[in-house]
Every structure is written in C-alpha cells, then in structure tokens.
Simulated scan of single mutants.
Amino acid sequence: MSDNRSPLPRWVLLALLVTGIIAISFSSIFIRWSHAPSSVMAMYRLFFTAVLMGPFVWRSKPDLKALSSSDWGLMAVSGLFLALHFLFWMESLAFTSVASSTIILALEPILILAGAYWLFKERTTRKAVLGLAVAILGASLIGWGDIGISGRALTGDLLSLAGTAAVALHLLVGQRLASRVPSLFYSFFIFLVAGTAFLIYNLARGTALGGYPTREWGIFLLLAVVPTVFGHVLFNWLLQYVNAVTVSMSVLGEPVGATILAYLLLDEKLTLTQGAAGLVIIWGVWYFMRHNQVRYAVEEADKPVKHKKAASGPSVTG
C-alpha cells in the first residue's frame, strides 16, 4: 500500500462516508427479509465477501512471509470473535426491534475503551468517561423499555449487547495486528476464518446448508455486497485518507439509518422510550469520541496512515 496517496476532496470523503453508513444500515433489513437461520446467513455473507475480495487480495501481493506464527494465531482468534459477533447480533434481530438492536451496537466504542483500559492500560479523559456513563444509561433505558414489551425483546437486547462485546474483542485483537498485517489481507483472512467457524457450527447442529429458494440466495449475496463490501470494506479503504476516529463516527449513523429503513420497509414503529434512549446513547457516544480522540490525534500527527489501525477500524459491525 502506498503511503504517498493524494488526498481526496472533502466532498468525496463525505459522499463515501454517507454511502458506507447507508450500506451498513441495510444489514438488519436484509436479515429481517430472510427466513434462513442466522448462522447460514452469516456463513454465506462471509464466504461470498471473501470470494469477491479474493482477486483484489491476489493483486495486492501481500508479504505473508513477514507474519509470525503468533500473528496467524491472533488473526484466527480475531476471526472467531467476528463469528461470535455475527451469531449474536444477527440472532438478536429475531427477538427485538431493529431500532433497539442497532442502537445497542453504538456502544461499540465504549466497550473498546473498557477493553483497551483492561488489556493495554490505555487512559482517557474525564469528559470521555462522562460520555461513556451517559451512553450506558441510554442502553439501560432501552432494556428497561423492552422489559415492558416482553422478555423476548429483552433477550434480543442482551444478544445484541453480547454481539457488540464480541466485535469489541475482535477489534482489540486487530489493534495488536494493525501495524504488521496488510488491511486487505487481514479482512479477507478473518472473513474466511469466521465463515469456516460458521460452517463447522452449522454442520455440528445439522443445519441445512442448501435447498434454499432463489430469493434467499439473493439476500445472502446482498448481505455480502451492500453492508459488507460497500460498507465495512469501504470504511477500511477510507482509513488510507482519514484517521480511525473519523471513520468510527459512522457507528452513530447506523442506528439512525437502520431505524428509518425499518420504518419505511418493515413498518416498524419507534417507541418514545427507544427514541429517547437512542438520542441519549448517540449523544453519549459522540461526546465520548469527541473527547477521547485527542490521544489519536497526538499519535497520528506526524505519521502517514499505513496499515495502522486498519485492522481495528469499524469493519465488522452490522
């Protein structure tokens, strides 16, 4: 990957970020449209994406000899956490609303902060911690509101939270690899690992791998192309031009976009509690990211963006 790329015009960057946000917002819609098991949807989504990426990975000629056995092991672990993310989050949509599930996903930066503090002793500011507390309050409001709807909705909220925790662990592992593993190959490899994990999972459970109608195969392909390639892979590519904090702000756009699409395409209504809690979470996460990005700005001020943080970008939510 070249370090001497010409900067993109601001309007182009903005257009690409908006495109990515819209693309990942469709993920929950496609999942709701499908009648296939979540584990099957996730497996084909990952395998189809790997197939689409294959030619580009081949052309990039990544230097794999430089990778140690521990690098390969950590990539495998990262892929397994990615599989857990998809398993929990996609399953959550069978229990709770698109709004509740995707709003809880916005807690991803908060959980990453907690993990980074525990694993890497990374510090943050008091204002960022305030944003963290507000976001957690918002998530609690969603859970409290969904208890009033049904225990089933609360189960979906907990599954979404588990999926968010899994993706946070995936990104923290990726952070350890970001300076050593090319971004494109990293994404390709972890998609293969996660897809293989789902293959084993489905075989162990006796879940049918084939026999689905043409409509379902179309949804599997849409999941690979729209939210994954035009969403997550696009965000990883943008890390060549903007820092990870800027791209990570997209996490605030997904619940908004997904909720609007669910209203238009699934006839889902947004409750007053969900709306209020969503605003609380989004404000809390925005405030946290605004006051936590000083550390990143200092780290990146004098460094060109290479593979740094590419593996820890927002490429796997939703």
Results as ranks from 00 to 15, higher is better:
S70R: 14
A139W: 01
V129G: 03
L52V: 13
P55L: 10
G143P: 02
S100C: 00
S60H: 06
Y44L: 09
L141S: 06
V77T: 13
P55R: 08
W58E: 09
S78C: 14
L46Y: 08
F81Y: 10
M90W: 00
A94G: 12
L82N: 04
E122I: 07
L107W: 00
A94E: 13
L137F: 12
F95E: 00
D63H: 12
A83D: 00
K121G: 11
V51I: 15
V98L: 06
F48M: 15
G79L: 06
M53A: 10
I103S: 11
G73K: 09
G143R: 01
V57T: 07
S100V: 03
L74T: 11
R45K: 11
I103D: 02
A99W: 00
G54P: 01
I112W: 05
F81V: 00
E91M: 10
S70E: 15
S101E: 10
L132Y: 09
M43Y: 04
A83L: 06
L130A: 15
V129L: 15
V77M: 14
L74H: 13
G138T: 07
A66I: 11
G73P: 01
V51M: 13
A106G: 06
K65N: 14
Y117P: 04
L137K: 02
A94S: 14
H85V: 03
F47Y: 13
P55W: 09
M53T: 06
S68L: 01
E122L: 03
L130I: 15
G73R: 08
F48C: 11
L52H: 08
F88H: 08
F48S: 10
L93K: 00
P109A: 09
Y117T: 15
S69Q: 13
S60L: 03
F95R: 04
G54V: 11
S97I: 03
F56L: 13
V51Q: 11
L87F: 14
W144N: 10
A106W: 07
S140L: 15
I104F: 00
A83V: 02
G131W: 01
G79K: 04
S60A: 15
W144F: 14
F86E: 07
A133P: 01
A114T: 13
I104S: 02
I112F: 05
S101F: 03
